[in-house]
Simulated assay, not measured.
Amino acid sequence: MVTFLFTLLILIPIAIAIDIAEKIDNFLEHQDLGFLQIVDEYYINFIIYYANTFMPLALFIAVILFTSKLSNNTEIIAINNAKISFTRFLLPYFIGATLITLLSLAMNHFVVPSSSKIRKKFELTYIKNKRQNQQFKYVSDFSLQLTDSTYIFIRNFNTQSNAGYDFTSEVYDGLNMKSKLVADNIRYNDKDSSFLLQNWRLRRIYEDKDSIFSGNKIDTVFNFTPKDLIYKSALSQEMPSDELLKFIEISEKRGVKNLNAYLVEFHKRTSLPIASYVLTIIAVALAFRKRRGGTGVNLAIGVGMMFIYVFLLKISEVLGAVAGVNSLVYVWMPNIFFGSIALYLYLNARK
């Protein structure tokens, strides 16, 4: 555990130094931005995010360093001569991996999303350029299914001012339209969760006649908020897991076609911590034999495998976010691949 903390404390300052080098110009552009604000709103949350991300990888390197030291000191030979099985030898490693996995799961599902919300708000305010900020500000040509029979369409909506234009709401009974509400302008009131419609027209359709109503202004309620109009994968990182699951469930009922970006984020919060067990077995199996070249060879092999794991993880995230695929399978694919390697190494190490 001491080696793990030492490895983590090496990785975090490197990540901070690289990030400062990239963003120092953005910080200096804002004269009202102080050092304490940068640390409090950005780098504390930056450390929380990357410390949690690096945990399984830091554990992997720590196990290689620690086990290689045992091997170089011929302590593992003494353990083998004492007839202690390889499975029993792994037990302390798994206790440490379990502690780190539980901590990482708790942070992934509850702590990191809240921290990411503060960090991303800071980035949008002081780091992102205007074009990048616009992607969350304007929504155009958006349609949404509120219930089994109610559909809405908005030509353009500004999520910052909570106002838009060219709004349509249609209610169906099966394939037959029952009513259609059209408004030139729409504005959301956050205080009472109501919508103000301007220059509205309501048409009710009956079997033998239609009724048409119109007016300048009307207050009404719909089963959505401006936040529901923004379907961006980045927002999923800011939601605790219970809120994210509820959001996915509501979005499925509303007929949103592709939610895989959100499902990838949810599944990744569990798959990455569980990888600690897989990486621990691989690291012990690589380092428990004494090699010519010592710790350096084991560390080089371990770092190489670590980069392969991160590479596969990124590929699986991209492929898992594609519509029509099983995101759960793609997110767990790196663990399945490296799990098979871990099983092979474990069975050979037992001999």
Rank of each mutant, 00 (worst) to 15 (best):
K217M: 04
Y172T: 01
Y165A: 03
R201Q: 13
Y206L: 07
Y231W: 09
T225M: 11
D166I: 00
K191W: 04
L175E: 14
Q198C: 12
Y231A: 07
Y165E: 03
P226D: 06
V221K: 11
F195M: 13
I218T: 13
F167M: 01
N189C: 13
I186P: 04
L229E: 02
D184V: 11
Y231N: 12
A183P: 07
I212F: 03
G215K: 05
S194I: 02
R204F: 02
Y165P: 01
Y172F: 15
F195S: 05
S179L: 15
S169V: 01
L196H: 10
R187E: 11
N176D: 12
D192G: 04
L181T: 10
K178C: 05
L196G: 09
D190H: 14
N223E: 08
V182P: 00
K209W: 00
N185E: 13
D192V: 13
V182I: 15
R203D: 02
Y188Q: 09
K232T: 13
T225C: 02
T225S: 12
E170C: 04
K191P: 09
F213W: 02
N223H: 01
R203E: 06
V171T: 10
S214H: 08
F167A: 00
I205G: 01
D190R: 14
W200Q: 06
S214Q: 12
D173A: 11
D228S: 06
F167L: 03
A183M: 10
E207R: 06
I205M: 12
I205Q: 05
N199Q: 13
G174D: 07
T225D: 09
D219A: 03
D184Q: 15
D192L: 12
S179R: 13
K227I: 09
N216Y: 10
D219V: 06
E170Y: 08
P226H: 08
Y206T: 02
T220I: 10
M177Y: 05
D228V: 07
N223F: 03
K232N: 14
K217G: 03
K180Q: 14
N176M: 07
I212P: 01
V221I: 10
L229T: 04
S169T: 01
Y172Q: 09
E170Q: 14
F222Q: 04
K217H: 10
Y172D: 02
K232M: 05
L202Q: 05
T220D: 02
K180G: 09
R201W: 03
D210K: 10
V221W: 06
I186T: 11
F224I: 10
S179E: 15
S211R: 14
I218H: 08
F195H: 12
D190K: 15
Y231P: 00
S169E: 11
Y172V: 07
D166T: 02
K232I: 11
D192F: 06
R204P: 00
Y188A: 08
D219Q: 02
K217W: 03
D210A: 13
G174A: 09
R203T: 14
V221A: 05
A234D: 10
D173K: 10
L197G: 03
R203P: 00
S211F: 12
L196S: 14
